[in-house]
Design a binder for these strands. Structure first.
Lengths: 198, 198
DNA sequence: CGGCGATGTTAGTCATCATTAACCGGCTCG
DNA sequence: CGAGCCGGTTAATGATGACTAACATCGCCG
């Protein structure tokens, strides 16, 4: 059996997930390596067999989140040969919304970490995450500028951040509503709020 | 001159403000007492002449924010003898929105701290802050239930959290738009997003 | 004047942590 | 079989950082 192979892979993933949840709950500096270790049943320095340090954990978590969001966005927006029509743009916005909402509802802890811990990341990786975030925002802005051509980009960007705030409220309204009810609510609210950009 | 009186009052306020800004920028655990001291020109343990400890600083900051929001909300909603009509409710919602938006635009750092640092507060005060937050949310829910009587409370609460997320996006979209443009944009987006509750 | 309360200062003290060292069992592969 | 890596373990080690002690200044009030 590939006993050593698979378990190793699992350990890494387990650690990342546990770390993400702990960071979400108590913040990067509020969590010790020992905490992370015992969350996965090993103790303390065992973490260093899988990651070079605490910051490396955060880097990997944040890069993964940013890449997932950006890549998802890029896939949805760039895939067809983009007739650049208003109808196409509406569908693209819909896809962006759906993707972001699904992610936020499925991973409230990751959303929280993504929103709060950028500053605690080591410089080179922080820049990469910021770049990915910027690209993701620009995808939204591109789609929105198709739908609201008279709206200045700064306004579109501000509105995009506002919509992200709305969608990323999932960690705070956890449990109020089941996801099946939450998703359409957020979708509807987002679309309606963007309609004021006309 | 009242040299000792006024300076003291100022020091306290100075410290609170500096601490709030530092907490907003680097997180509670990312800031040392020494940092806070030097931000106001004294060094380190001088802080203990004004506050009993680091947590006391956070407590005072968060309690102040929560109280300001709640009190502002209560004032606007409870003041007249509440004819309980839809027109009155619309005005109340408007007032709540205006109050929250003004606060968020004037104090992005405080909004950030309020959103991120609840967990780092000592237990008894944390409960008080949570209570104030709950009361504030319930004020919104009360007004909204007047406007959308067929909407179940859980849905109203979820929508309220979503709107808070939208309004509290100010720290992230800082600088995109001047406040004079930001305020009506957020107001419009919030009102429009809530209209889906019908 | 003399003392005292409010504010600071600098030098500990004590915990907490990230990270490293030194050591070990077991699985695989030659 | 046996060498070696993989993943763990438990003890340092070294910083950092909250908080306390002991001592200084200074303006006011008696």
């Amino acid at each position: 059996m590939t006993a050593p192979r698979t378990p190793t892979r699992n350990r890494r993933a387990e650690i990342l997930q546990a770390a993400a949840e702990l960071f979400a709950a108590r913040g990067f500096h509020g969590v010790s390596i020992e905490d992370i270790g015992s969350a996965v049943g090993v103790s303390g320095p065992a973490i260093y067999r899988h990651f070079s340090g605490k910051e490396a954990l955060l880097s990997e978590i944040l890069l993964d989140i940013s890449e997932r969001l950006r890549e998802q966005g890029a896939r949805l927006v760039t895939e067809p040969d983009a007739p650049a029509g208003s109808a196409y743009a509406r569908a693209a916005l819909d896809a962006l919304l759906r993707g972001h909402i699904d992610f936020a509802l499925a991973n409230p802890a990751l959303i929280r970490v993504h929103e709060r811990e950028l500053d605690n990341m080591p410089e080179p990786d922080r820049r990469r995450v910021r770049r990915l975030q910027r690209l993701y925002v620009e995808e939204w802005v591109t789609v929105l500028s198709e739908l609201y051509p008279d709206c200045p980009p700064a306004r579109l960007r501000a509105a995009t951040h506002a919509v992200f705030g709305l969608l990323n409220s999932t960690p705070r309204s956890a449990g109020e509503l089941p996801p099946e009810a939450m998703a359409p609510l957020l979708h509807g609210m987002a679309v309606a709020s963007l309609a004021v950009l006309t």
